[in-house]
């Protein structure tokens, strides 16, 4: 990673710590608690200050550092596949209750396989369905755990 990128990251963390510290000042207290040696906001305040101080040290450290000869080039990463997988994970969470475990898991696995380059039809359809069905039966029938069967199933 380039030094400029590292400094940017340290600055982002500085903002995060500052926001955390500001939020810590809004933590409510019971009447009279402000006179006690330890309050619910004591630890967060210490952490915010420590974080801010460390970020400043990091920025100064990076400022003095020479540019490394080889750096990680972010553009060379496969951002598209990783972003799509993250989106699929979020969609999996949304789909779990309405579609039910089996349908949501089958779709999640099929989408994951597809994003990573799998194109064989039986692996995109049969394997996810069989796997999720087997997992569902194992959890619900053998281990006695509840897994959503889906709103559509109830209807």
């Amino acid at each position: 990673m380039s030094i400029r990128g590292q400094i940017f990251a340290a600055m982002c963390l500085f903002v995060l710590f500052a926001a955390y510290g500001l939020q810590a000042t809004t933590i409510p207290m019971f009447p009279g608690q402000e006179y006690e040696p330890f309050k619910p906001r004591t630890m967060p305040m210490i952490l915010a200050m420590a974080g801010l101080l460390l970020c400043v040290v990091r920025i100064f450290q990076l400022w003095r550092m020479p540019q490394p000869e080889s750096t990680v080039v972010l553009a060379e990463f496969d951002w598209k596949s990783a972003s799509l997988l993250c989106a699929v994970m979020l969609a999996y969470g949304f789909a779990m209750t309405p579609l039910g475990f089996v349908a949501a898991t089958s779709l999640f696995l099929a989408a994951g396989f597809f994003i990573l380059g799998e194109r064989r039809l039986w692996l995109l359809t049969g394997l996810p369905l069989l796997f999720s069905l087997a997992f569902y039966l194992l959890m619900t029938r053998v281990l006695g755990l509840y897994l959503s069967s889906g709103l559509w199933w109830n209807v």
């Binding site: 963390l13 710590f17 955390y20 939020q23 810590a24 933590i27 409510p28 207290m29 019971f30 608690q33 330890f38 309050k39 619910p40 906001r41 630890m43 967060p44 952490l47 915010a48 420590a50 974080g51 460390l54």
Partner: peptide, 20 residues
Amino acid sequence: VIGLMLSTVGTDPSAGIQRF
């Protein structure tokens, strides 16, 4: 410090006050 910060999310164990 980030790890410690994340541990402060939730109900404060001493006073029962919600934080973050």
